[in-house]
């Protein structure tokens, strides 16, 4: 095994960085080894009660290169991106960005999301923006219920929203829609050309 090395930035890497760590650091811009497991992130996380690992243990799992555990966790999907953890972390780690990068990794690896409905919701949201350029709430709800096979979810509110004219029946039209579609296509092309680093199993001796 390689010995600990001092990096130019002055942090000690006790182990070669795992592929997982390399991916997370490059996509989130955060240094995960700075986490010293104080637990402040989990303590203030509004979703922590419903998560399996919670943000603190996700940070530890990344340090240890436990890719499968991280990708299979509900935590990365139950993160609301509220940024409370990032605001309070004494090591000034943007944990919310770390969570986001793990969702990107899950998408890149096509891993099965532990929270299927959350992943579905995001995907449908994007599909609707691509189609119409703006969000279409009623369409989003209907598609979600159909594709998620829970046809009666969230229906209780419908009459109240409709009677107050809060839910337009038709999507908003914007001439910007075609430009938005072009943006989606060009983003996809750019990402095919320069994909993010692969989060390989095992370790990677490259250092920053």
């Amino acid at each position: 095994m390689k010995m600990a090395q001092l990096t130019p930035a002055g942090t000690i890497h006790p182990f070669p960085r795992s592929g997982l760590q390399v991916f997370v650091e490059s996509q989130s811009g955060q240094r995960v080894l700075r986490c010293y497991q104080c637990g402040k992130c989990t303590a203030g996380c509004p979703s922590a009660y419903a998560m399996d690992l919670g943000p603190r243990r996700v940070m530890r799992a990344i340090q240890l290169g436990l890719k499968d555990e991280v990708l299979a966790s509900s935590t990365i999907w139950l993160c609301l991106q509220c940024q409370t953890c990032s605001a309070r972390c004494p090591a000034e780690i943007g944990i919310a960005e770390v969570m986001e990068s793990l969702r990107l990794l899950a998408a890149a690896e096509r891993s099965r999301p532990a929270e299927r409905d959350v992943a579905l919701f995001h995907r449908l949201f994007r599909d609707l923006i691509r189609r119409w350029g703006r969000i279409y709430e009623l369409g989003l709800g209907a598609l979600y219920n159909l594709r998620g096979r829970h046809p009666f979810a969230n229906l209780g509110l419908l009459p109240h929203l409709l009677s107050r004219g809060k839910l337009p029946l038709l999507p908003q039209r914007t001439k910007g829609a075609s430009q938005v579609r072009a943006i989606f296509a060009r983003v996809r092309a750019a990402e095919r050309e320069a994909p993010p680093p692969e989060a390989k199993e095992g370790t990677d001796a490259s250092r920053q």
Binding site: Q81, G133, I135, Q179, V180, V187
Partner: peptide, 26 residues
């Protein structure tokens, strides 16, 4: 603004960092 479009909310960014920047950049 004329012909404005969605900012992508949290969903664009959840799939692609670039998309999450490009939509608001417009």
């Amino acid at each position: 603004l004329k012909d404005w479009a969605c900012c992508g909310a949290s969903s664009a960014h959840a799939e692609s960092r670039l998309l999450g920047i490009a939509l608001p950049a417009r």
